[in-house]
Deep mutational scan, measured.
Amino acid sequence: QEEEKEIKRLAKKFNASEEEARRAWKKAGGDPETAEKILKKKG
C-alpha cells in the first residue's frame, strides 16, 4: 500500500517512529511534502 510505504520512508528519513510519521501524514492530509515539513519542525 502506497500510504504505508510513504510512512515508512518518512519515519526512516527523519529518524522518527512510524507512529509519529503516521500522525504527521494524517495531519498533512496525506500530502508527503507537508508531512515532511511537520516532521522536520518536530525533529
Rank of each mutant, 00 (worst) to 15 (best):
residue 1 Q to T: 11
residue 1 Q to W: 13
residue 2 E to A: 11
residue 2 E to C: 10
residue 2 E to N: 12
residue 3 E to F: 12
residue 3 E to R: 06
residue 4 E to K: 04
residue 6 E to T: 08
residue 6 E to R: 06
residue 6 E to I: 13
residue 6 E to W: 14
residue 7 I to H: 02
residue 7 I to V: 09
residue 8 K to R: 12
residue 8 K to A: 12
residue 9 R to H: 04
residue 9 R to M: 08
residue 9 R to D: 07
residue 11 A to Q: 05
residue 11 A to V: 06
residue 11 A to P: 00
residue 12 K to E: 10
residue 12 K to P: 00
residue 12 K to M: 13
residue 14 F to Y: 15
residue 15 N to G: 11
residue 15 N to V: 03
residue 15 N to H: 13
residue 15 N to Y: 05
residue 16 A to D: 02
residue 16 A to T: 15
residue 17 S to L: 04
residue 18 E to L: 13
residue 18 E to G: 02
residue 18 E to Q: 09
residue 18 E to W: 09
residue 18 E to K: 05
residue 18 E to F: 15
residue 19 E to D: 07
residue 19 E to R: 08
residue 20 E to I: 06
residue 20 E to A: 08
residue 20 E to Q: 07
residue 20 E to V: 08
residue 20 E to R: 05
residue 21 A to P: 00
residue 22 R to G: 04
residue 22 R to N: 03
residue 22 R to S: 05
residue 23 R to A: 15
residue 23 R to W: 13
residue 23 R to I: 14
residue 23 R to C: 08
residue 24 A to M: 01
residue 24 A to Y: 02
residue 24 A to G: 01
residue 24 A to K: 00
residue 25 W to H: 03
residue 26 K to T: 12
residue 26 K to M: 12
residue 26 K to D: 12
residue 26 K to G: 09
residue 26 K to P: 01
residue 27 K to Q: 15
residue 27 K to M: 12
residue 27 K to A: 15
residue 27 K to S: 12
residue 28 A to Y: 01
residue 28 A to W: 00
residue 29 G to T: 03
residue 29 G to V: 05
residue 29 G to P: 01
residue 30 G to P: 01
residue 30 G to E: 03
residue 30 G to S: 05
residue 31 D to K: 06
residue 31 D to W: 03
residue 31 D to Y: 03
residue 32 P to N: 06
residue 33 E to P: 06
residue 33 E to R: 12
residue 33 E to M: 11
residue 34 T to W: 11
residue 34 T to A: 13
residue 34 T to Q: 13
residue 35 A to C: 08
residue 35 A to K: 00
residue 35 A to D: 00
residue 35 A to Q: 01
residue 35 A to E: 00
residue 36 E to F: 04
residue 37 K to R: 10
residue 37 K to F: 07
residue 38 I to Q: 03
residue 38 I to M: 08
residue 38 I to R: 02
residue 38 I to T: 03
residue 38 I to D: 03
residue 39 L to N: 01
residue 39 L to R: 01
residue 39 L to P: 00
residue 39 L to Q: 01
residue 40 K to H: 14
residue 40 K to D: 14
residue 40 K to S: 14
residue 41 K to S: 10
residue 41 K to W: 10
residue 42 K to F: 15
residue 42 K to R: 07
residue 42 K to Q: 15
residue 42 K to E: 15
residue 43 G to N: 09
residue 43 G to I: 10
